[in-house]
Write a protein that binds this DNA or RNA. Sequence first.
DNA 1: CCGTTCATGTAAGGCGTTACATGATTCC
DNA 2: GGAATCATGTAACGCCTTACATGAACGG
Lengths: 185, 185
Amino acid sequence: LNTQDVILGLLHMRSYSGYEMKHYFEEVFSFFFDASYGTIYPTLSKMEQLGYITKENISQENRPNKNVYSLTSAGKEQFQIYLNSPVEAPTVRSDFLVRMFFGEFAENELAIKWVQDALLENIRLAENLEKMKHTRKEDKLMSPTRLICLQIGIESKRTQIEVLREGLLSLQKLNISDMEQGDQQ
Amino acid sequence: LNTQDVILGLLHMRSYSGYEMKHYFEEVFSFFFDASYGTIYPTLSKMEQLGYITKENISQENRPNKNVYSLTSAGKEQFQIYLNSPVEAPTVRSDFLVRMFFGEFAENELAIKWVQDALLENIRLAENLEKMKHTRKEDKLMSPTRLICLQIGIESKRTQIEVLREGLLSLQKLNISDMEQGDQQ
DNA sequence: CCGTTCATGTAAGGCGTTACATGATTCC
DNA sequence: GGAATCATGTAACGCCTTACATGAACGG
């Protein structure tokens, strides 16, 4: 899986400019994919040269021109090649979970801060996903597999929020018993 | 967060060879970090040159020598610098979820296969994590934050398994109604 | 007037993976 | 006899990020 495959998928739904793709990734794909402009724009040039997509320059009033890309039949074929390739294992890299794993080597207050921040961030993300699900479901734009994708995002976030809430309490109790120990000395 | 930071963390627990580190990553870190030999060995050389770790060549009977690395005080300090740096957002790249998102452009049977495989893989991973939790908990080797880390892994997997099971059923129903439609023609 | 949004791109550099190379031992 | 495990390392290459560059319009 690389950025090219994802762009081919996106353009199966409708035409997008590079700028719009980036926004789509941020809003919708946040929990399973991301790409920066530094990847998107060069990839679009390459894909145009390969004949997978065509560019159309659109003039706009009061804002810059944009390059809107559309899928060609070669692009559709290329996407089917991707879909028929073996599924790759996911890659995850979570700074937060590494810190949790090695938390015993950090000060308790630092760890508490990490968990609090993670909690807030996860609540924010869960709310966004929830909104997406409702707006899109009413539009009847959601395929069964896309619903699975979204549902995994939502439920995973919910689960993490629960664990983090419990974890936060246990860390805060530790802090209190440390303070009592300190008082007794 | 990079491989160096994680190695510094690992060596806070005990000494490891590069080969052992890779195994540790596979067994324990699988749901939030990974690194290949091609990263580990060069990183260890670099860290030794920087004075964060020291190498000791250990002779073994009936198997190759190994280089076991230990943390220096400079390495401990470096790890504290990492712990006090801002927490980075996690990066995820899930081929499976991309395929779920664009599943409407694939054949239903292909999608069913993807979900079935994901289900089996997630069950396997959940069982491994569960085992880890019990063996380590009895040893009383588990810090509160490490328990949070493990618990997030376990509960996330469980949640995903549930969603995948439901999703699989809905996709299989679709397949049946397609076949009935086909029969009627 | 200043920050944000819209919009596209490049260049340098970082970080990482895959594949290759080597070789003994152990288990089936 | 062949595959798997133990064990370390390099080299080529791919992919991606960050920072830089540019510039108009709009809202406060």
